[in-house]
């Protein structure tokens, strides 16, 4: 369970204070597949970072109960000078996971096993995303935080990742950030929509998407 307790976030920029979230009170169960919808710059990534614990809220508290993944975005955390295998071993050490099983999973999932001994800086954007994606899915979390990642990869990879998600979602949840309502609909059952500086929850993803499409422009 993730508790957002009177949680707010603002940034003091050079042009004044910018409010992103204003005193949110909400509990998010870990085993749900929740899509977070909002326009560009509404604060979706910031919310994900706060939930992960990478960034602190300006006021209030985020209480996490359970294993939550790091916010999974484009190429985050891969060392460009290290090879794929070395990056995998770093993550497994950091999260105290079993290297062999993770390695097998990633090799199987990402389909780049012939490149895994090359430095990551020689990978293409799609290959990095596959590696990242496989890496995070290979470690057991109660909830996966995913930030606009599924935009990359070809049709087959997308099919595959959707399948992987379904397998994972049987006992784990998903917080999925996107401004693309179609992908959100594919992956999620519930929705949190940014509206101004508040977060509107929906029990039905279609309702949430409707609300987003109708009121997104006003946010």
């Amino acid at each position: 369970m993730i508790h957002l307790i009177n949680c707010g976030k603002y940034y003091d920029t050079d042009v004044g204070r910018r409010e992103i979230l204003k005193s949110v009170n909400m509990s998010i169960p870990l085993n749900l597949r929740v899509g977070i919808l909002g326009r560009n710059g509404a604060g979706k990534t910031t919310l994900l970072k706060m939930i992960a614990g990478v960034e602190n809220p300006s006021y209030g508290e985020v209480v996490r109960r359970g294993k939550i993944s790091w916010p999974l975005g484009l190429s985050g955390g891969l060392h460009p000078d290290l090879t794929g295998v070395e990056n995998i071993s770093f993550i497994t050490r950091l999260y105290r996971a079993d290297f062999d099983s993770v390695f097998e999973y990633v090799k199987d999932f990402s389909e780049i096993d012939q490149y895994l001994d090359m430095p990551v800086k020689s990978y293409s954007q799609g290959m990095r995303a596959r590696l990242m994606f496989g890496l995070s899915l290979s470690i057991d979390f109660d909830c996966y935080l995913i930030d606009e990642l599924t935009g990359v990869g070809d049709r087959f990879f997308k099919e595959k990742s959707k399948q992987a998600f379904r397998e994972r979602a049987e006992n784990a949840g998903l917080l999925f950030v996107s401004h693309n309502e179609k992908t959100v609909k594919e992956y999620c059952d519930y929705a949190l929509v940014f509206y101004g500086t508040s977060l509107v929850p929906f029990e039905d993803i279609d309702e949430g998407v409707d609300f987003y499409l109708k009121n997104g422009g006003t946010a």
């Binding site: 369970m1 508790h3 307790i5 009170n25 909400m26 509990s27 998010i28 169960p29 749900l32 209480v63 519930y190 949190l192 509206y195 101004g196 500086t197 508040s198 509107v200 929850p201 929906f202 029990e203 609300f211 009121n215």
Partner: peptide, 18 residues
């Protein structure tokens, strides 16, 4: 913030329960 939001009920599943 506006009446639009007022009309939407907070789903039980997301309601604060710490």
């Amino acid at each position: 913030q506006s009446t639009i939001i007022e009309e939407i009920e907070l789903p039980k599943i997301f309601s604060p329960k710490w």
